[in-house]
Simulated scan of single mutants.
Amino acid sequence: MKLNHIALVRLSALGDIVNATIVLQFIRQKYPNIKIDWICEEVFAPLLTEHPFIHQVHTINLKKLKKEKNFSGVVQTVKRLRALPKYDLIIDMQGLLKSAVVSRIIGKNIHGYDKDSARESLASLFYASTSNIPYELSVIKRNVALINDALDLQISDEMIDTKEPTLPAYERPFFTQERYAVFVIGASWASKIYPKEKVAEVCNSLTCKTYIVWGSEQEKADAEFVAQHSENAQLTPKLDLKELCALISHASLVIGNDTGPTHMAWAYNVPSITLFGPTNERMIYPTTTNVAIHSDSKVDISHIDKNDFSIKDIDPIAVANKAKELLKW
């Protein structure tokens, strides 16, 4: 297959984009001169703009346009998408109706998930070719399998296990100590959040400085609670995406809920513990140093129960013991 210029469509969310970047290094290994563009929501662009394997990032603001019911903005967005280069191939890595429509506006030669494996089956109607990849499969393996099928890359599990960091490198943040852990206390749903009282217990059990990452005022308040109840815990300043990447990439360990910043640890080959309640290990790629601790809930990943607050039942002693094992100092 002769390819000079392709586009990857993965609009959101943060964790999903982080997990999708694994494919970039493997595409460039087989096609060293290829240009790879990425289409995403504007808020996530800083994560990708300095990536060495991405030629250009193109952004849209679908959430904002929908919220404001901005019809003229939609028209302008469609015009901008139609003006993008004529790609040899467009790969919709999201499998939603909105990402399929965006892909189809850009061009016709689109590859994506088939109706049985896309998150929204109608999306498959917009593709020129499709892959059947079980939805229950790990999100990392789904991303890899889709690219394998689209570009005939033959990425193996061993290649994933020995990957290079999938996100750009940044200098250590100015405020960090020589060695530190990070605790990610936020998440997109309340039921995915480990209680702040138990976060404080974990931090008290560790012997290193633990920076508490926050992104909203509620998360800041929770982080302040943790810092007040643990001498080892310290709030970070308000971080942008690049600063967050820098903090995660230089950490000795990341502990957190099933959310984007926690997934960054695996992307940077940093040891991590992901805490699960209503979701499960499908959302990560478990390794010897990237592990999951989950509640006793039986999770149906196709029908997630957002009212499952069982994450609160995870024993902080179990989290702390695993953290000490991974820290090795």
Results as ranks from 00 to 15, higher is better:
residue 299 V to G: 05
residue 40 C to N: 04
residue 152 D to I: 00
residue 268 Y to V: 08
residue 158 E to I: 13
residue 216 S to I: 10
residue 285 Y to K: 06
residue 33 N to K: 15
residue 129 S to Q: 14
residue 267 A to H: 01
residue 257 N to Q: 09
residue 315 D to E: 13
residue 60 I to D: 00
residue 172 R to A: 15
residue 191 S to Q: 02
residue 114 D to V: 00
residue 158 E to L: 14
residue 107 G to I: 12
residue 246 A to Q: 05
residue 36 I to T: 10
residue 140 I to V: 15
residue 226 V to T: 11
residue 180 Y to W: 01
residue 241 L to D: 06
residue 15 G to D: 00
residue 122 L to M: 12
residue 180 Y to T: 07
residue 136 E to Y: 10
residue 158 E to Y: 10
residue 303 H to Y: 09
residue 163 K to N: 12
residue 65 L to I: 15
residue 274 T to L: 05
residue 161 D to N: 15
residue 130 T to L: 01
residue 309 F to M: 13
residue 83 A to W: 01
residue 56 Q to A: 14
residue 30 K to F: 03
residue 256 G to E: 07
residue 128 A to V: 11
residue 12 S to R: 03
residue 294 H to D: 09
residue 266 W to E: 12
residue 46 P to M: 05
residue 297 S to Y: 06
residue 55 H to F: 11
residue 59 T to R: 07
residue 302 S to F: 09
residue 251 A to H: 05
residue 165 P to V: 07
residue 80 R to L: 14
residue 29 Q to V: 10
residue 58 H to K: 10
residue 313 D to M: 10
residue 111 H to D: 08
residue 42 E to Q: 15
residue 209 K to L: 06
residue 85 P to D: 09
residue 121 S to E: 11
residue 145 A to M: 13
residue 287 T to F: 06
residue 145 A to F: 04
residue 169 A to I: 10
residue 228 Q to Y: 02
residue 222 D to L: 09
residue 187 A to M: 08
residue 244 L to P: 03
residue 198 K to W: 02
residue 301 I to Y: 00
residue 230 S to H: 00
residue 190 A to Y: 12
residue 316 P to H: 12
residue 176 T to V: 15
residue 53 F to A: 10
residue 239 L to W: 01
residue 21 T to L: 07
residue 76 Q to W: 06
residue 131 S to T: 15
residue 167 L to C: 07
residue 4 N to Y: 00
residue 249 S to L: 05
residue 210 T to L: 06
residue 185 I to N: 06
residue 36 I to D: 04
residue 158 E to H: 12
residue 128 A to M: 14
residue 47 L to G: 01
residue 36 I to E: 02
residue 137 L to P: 02
residue 112 G to D: 04
residue 289 T to Q: 13
residue 226 V to R: 01
residue 51 H to L: 03
residue 90 I to R: 00
residue 105 I to M: 01
residue 110 I to G: 03
residue 287 T to H: 04
residue 120 E to K: 02
residue 250 H to F: 02
residue 120 E to Q: 11
residue 198 K to E: 08
residue 78 V to P: 03
residue 81 L to A: 14
residue 126 F to D: 01
residue 71 F to K: 13
residue 100 A to I: 01
residue 34 I to W: 02
residue 229 H to I: 12
residue 233 A to C: 10
residue 161 D to E: 14
residue 105 I to K: 00
